Measured scan of single mutants.
Amino acid sequence: YFQGQLNAMAHQIQEMFPQVPYHLVLQDLQLTRSVEITTDNILEGRI
Rank of each mutant, 00 (worst) to 15 (best):
M16S: 07
T32F: 04
Y22V: 07
E44T: 13
E44H: 14
E15C: 10
T39R: 11
V20H: 03
P21N: 07
L26V: 09
V35D: 03
G45Y: 05
Q27Y: 11
A8F: 12
L31W: 11
V35S: 06
L43Y: 06
R46V: 06
G45V: 04
Q27T: 08
T39E: 04
Y1V: 12
T39G: 04
N7F: 15
Y22R: 06
P21A: 08
I47W: 06
E44V: 08
Q27K: 12
N41T: 02
V20M: 08
L43W: 06
E36W: 08
S34G: 02
E15A: 14
T32M: 02
T32K: 00
Y1D: 14
F2D: 14
Q14T: 12
Q3H: 08
I37T: 10
V35N: 04
L43R: 14
T32D: 02
N7K: 14
F17W: 05
H11F: 11
T38P: 01
Q5T: 12
M9W: 15
Q3T: 08
Q19R: 10
L26Q: 04
A8K: 10
Y1P: 09
N7G: 10
Q27V: 08
P21T: 05
T38R: 00
E15P: 02
V20P: 02
I37G: 08
E44C: 11
Q12P: 00
N41E: 00
Q30I: 14
T38G: 00
Q12M: 12
Y22F: 14
I37V: 12
L24A: 08
R33V: 07
R33G: 15
E44M: 13
L24D: 05
F17N: 02
I13P: 00
L43A: 07
I47A: 02
Y1Q: 12
Q14V: 14
I37E: 11
L26E: 04
E36G: 08
F2S: 15
A10Y: 05
I13V: 10
T38N: 00
L43M: 09
L31V: 14
A8W: 13
L6G: 02
Q19G: 11
L29P: 01
Q14E: 05
A10T: 05
P18Q: 05
A10F: 05
N41Y: 03
P18L: 03
V20A: 05
Y22S: 04
L26M: 10
T38Q: 01
Q5Y: 13
G45F: 05
D40W: 15
T32A: 01
Y22C: 04
L31H: 11
N7L: 14
V25L: 11
H11N: 10
L6T: 04
H11R: 13
L29N: 00
L24W: 09
I42Q: 00
F17I: 02
L31T: 12
G45T: 02
H11Y: 11
P21C: 08
I42G: 00
I47R: 02
Q27M: 12
